[in-house]
Write a protein that binds this DNA or RNA. Sequence first.
DNA 1: TGCGAAACGCGACGCGAGTCGCATTAAGAT
DNA 2: ATCTTAATGCGACTCGCGTCGCGTTTCGCA
Lengths: 205, 205
Amino acid sequence: MSEESRTPSPRPGGRSARVRTEVVTATLAEVTEKGYDGLTVDAVAARSGVHKATLYRRWGGVDGLVAEALTASADQPWPLPDTGDLAGDLRLITREVFAVFTDPDLGPTPTALIAAAQRSDTGATALRAFFTARHRQAATVAERAIERGELPAGTDGAEVVRAATAPLYYRLFVSGEPLDARTAERAADAAALAARAGLFAPEAD
Amino acid sequence: MSEESRTPSPRPGGRSARVRTEVVTATLAEVTEKGYDGLTVDAVAARSGVHKATLYRRWGGVDGLVAEALTASADQPWPLPDTGDLAGDLRLITREVFAVFTDPDLGPTPTALIAAAQRSDTGATALRAFFTARHRQAATVAERAIERGELPAGTDGAEVVRAATAPLYYRLFVSGEPLDARTAERAADAAALAARAGLFAPEAD
DNA sequence: TGCGAAACGCGACGCGAGTCGCATTAAGAT
DNA sequence: ATCTTAATGCGACTCGCGTCGCGTTTCGCA
């Protein structure tokens, strides 16, 4: 949402829009094939047909390209489970995260994007926005649990989702320890348990 | 400890050992001052007095330097709390993590090291060994809780520690969302709750 | 104490990322 | 339809990372 609205510059329509689309597509393809360390501005320029100088002028370098790709990816919807049970929903969410990042076809792209985004301020900002949007979407499962009376009112749904998925991301991107389906389930169950105990409601002081 | 023992190569003692020490010191100093993106082999060479070509020959580049520094840091002991209560111990651990990484003086070094290690296989291996050692040490608080009867026998102590600290690392290095002391406490309490419920014991199927 | 070899110092080179000034295209307004 | 100018295309240039060949030091050993 709001891709064209944030345009204080005099002339953002027309050719520029097409260039942007081409560049985003090329960046995603390159980062998927080569990984982040193999991602070069020259390669994106060659694949997209956009001149190298233009890429540096508009995006400043590899960082900006990744941030642009991340922003474009943030808007895409995410399938949310609805099993009628909080623990069940959280298990499906963690299982989905587990499946995506360990899949040899799907995994490299988001993995490279996340790793790349940590290296620059622009990328970090885009990544943060990306996860904030994801959490906001996924918080729905907690809100439904509140309506069912499964969770206390005032529970921070996004925080519940974070608690469930954090152990997965922690292993994937920080400690580097192996991740299996068993761990994913355990993380979901632990988050559901803590949420039911009211740990993620503000009055639980 | 054990710096000279792991030497299968023909001639690792003497001058090489001194060079290694100088390089590790210089690498840590550089990465603290400039961050990872500002870390160059030339700077380490200039600061350590070791020639650039030697650094490339022995460590292969920036990745190897960071891995060496990480390995050297992994052996250092970590102060463990002992409050007589699992939740209290975990709170102090998460508070310690929170304090270290948000401190403007202490934070940059481990932050840069972790970010750097994610970019190469050698760094990732060293980082994984680092965290495995940390978890092994910190698991003591869970083992003491088992002895007190606070946790079921067979509880995976390292997993309890991971569950407590994961939300912190997740925010710091993945999502980039802000981290505060309140969140640190909540993560510790949630982990303690799940551990008491037996979620981290193998027979809890 | 003297010898062979491994490790290091040294300087020059190749190569690719990133920048700059100018020409060209096309978007938006009249 | 035409004009203004923002946006892009274009190629040459600079600069720093990483490498290579050779001379020198010093470690390990007899």
